[in-house]
Amino acid sequence: LSIEDFTQAFGMTPAAFSALPRWKQQNLKKEKGLF
């Protein structure tokens, strides 16, 4: 994903996403259907 696509999909920047705990990242991916 481009940074723009990522931000649009997750509502945050890739840097903010990577700062989240691993379990939170997994849950967000599942919610968006990317996992």
Rank of each mutant, 00 (worst) to 15 (best):
Q25F: 00
K24W: 03
L20A: 02
A15P: 02
G33D: 15
F6T: 07
W23R: 08
F17V: 07
T13N: 11
F17K: 11
L28E: 06
F35P: 14
K29C: 05
F17N: 11
A19G: 11
K29N: 02
D5W: 00
T13A: 02
N27K: 14
T7P: 05
L34E: 14
I3C: 11
P21W: 00
E4A: 03
K30N: 14
K32A: 12
E31D: 10
S18Y: 08
A16C: 05
S18R: 07
P21V: 02
E31Q: 11
E31I: 15
K30W: 03
P21G: 03
T13S: 10
F17A: 07
Q25I: 02
A19M: 13
Q25A: 05
E4W: 01
S18T: 06
G33Q: 12
P21R: 00
Q26S: 05
I3H: 12
T13K: 00
Q25C: 01
L20H: 04
T7N: 11
K32V: 12
W23E: 15
K29P: 00
A9L: 15
Q8Y: 00
A15C: 06
T7M: 08
K30M: 11
G33M: 06
R22L: 15
R22H: 14
P14G: 03
T13L: 03
F17Y: 10
L34P: 12
A9Y: 11
E4P: 08
K30G: 07
G11E: 10
A16D: 14
S18V: 04
F17E: 14
A15W: 03
A9R: 14
L1E: 13
N27D: 08
M12E: 05
A15Y: 01
S18A: 14
E31A: 06
G11S: 02
W23V: 10
F17Q: 10
N27F: 14
N27A: 14
F10R: 03
F10Q: 04
L34K: 08
D5E: 10
T7G: 04
L28K: 02
F6E: 01
A19V: 07
K30A: 11
K24L: 09
G11Y: 02
A19T: 11
G33F: 02
A16M: 11
L34T: 08
I3V: 09
D5Y: 02
K24Q: 14
K29Y: 10
D5V: 01
L20I: 06
P21D: 05
T13P: 04
S18D: 13
F17R: 06
K24R: 08
K24H: 10
L1M: 15
P21Q: 02
K29R: 10
G11W: 00
S2Q: 06
G33L: 05
K24M: 12
R22F: 14
G33V: 06
A19W: 01
G11P: 00
Q25E: 04
G33P: 07
G33H: 03
P21L: 02
D5H: 06
L34H: 06
W23F: 08
L34D: 09
M12I: 04
P21C: 00
E31T: 05
Q8K: 15
L34A: 13
Q26K: 11
L1N: 15
I3Y: 13
Q8P: 04
K30P: 04
I3F: 14
Q8C: 08
K29G: 05
A16T: 11
K30R: 12
G11T: 02
F10N: 06
W23N: 07
L1V: 01
L1R: 06
Q25K: 01
F35N: 14
T7D: 06
L34R: 12
A15N: 09
T13I: 01
K24A: 08
K32H: 12
P14N: 05
W23P: 07
A16H: 06
A16R: 10
L28S: 00
A19S: 11
Q26P: 00
F6S: 09
F6R: 02
A16E: 15
F6Q: 04
R22G: 14
L20F: 01
L34V: 09
K30D: 07
M12W: 01
E31L: 02
D5G: 03
W23S: 13
K32W: 08
T7H: 05
A9H: 12
M12R: 02
T13H: 07
F35M: 13
Q8N: 09
A15Q: 13
G33K: 04
A16Y: 02
A9S: 05
M12S: 03
P14H: 03
A9D: 10
E4H: 00
N27Q: 15
G33R: 06
N27T: 12
A19L: 12
K32G: 08
F10H: 09
K30C: 10
Q25V: 00
F17H: 08
S18C: 09
E31H: 15
M12T: 01
S2Y: 01
G11H: 00
M12F: 05
R22Y: 10
L1G: 11
A9G: 05
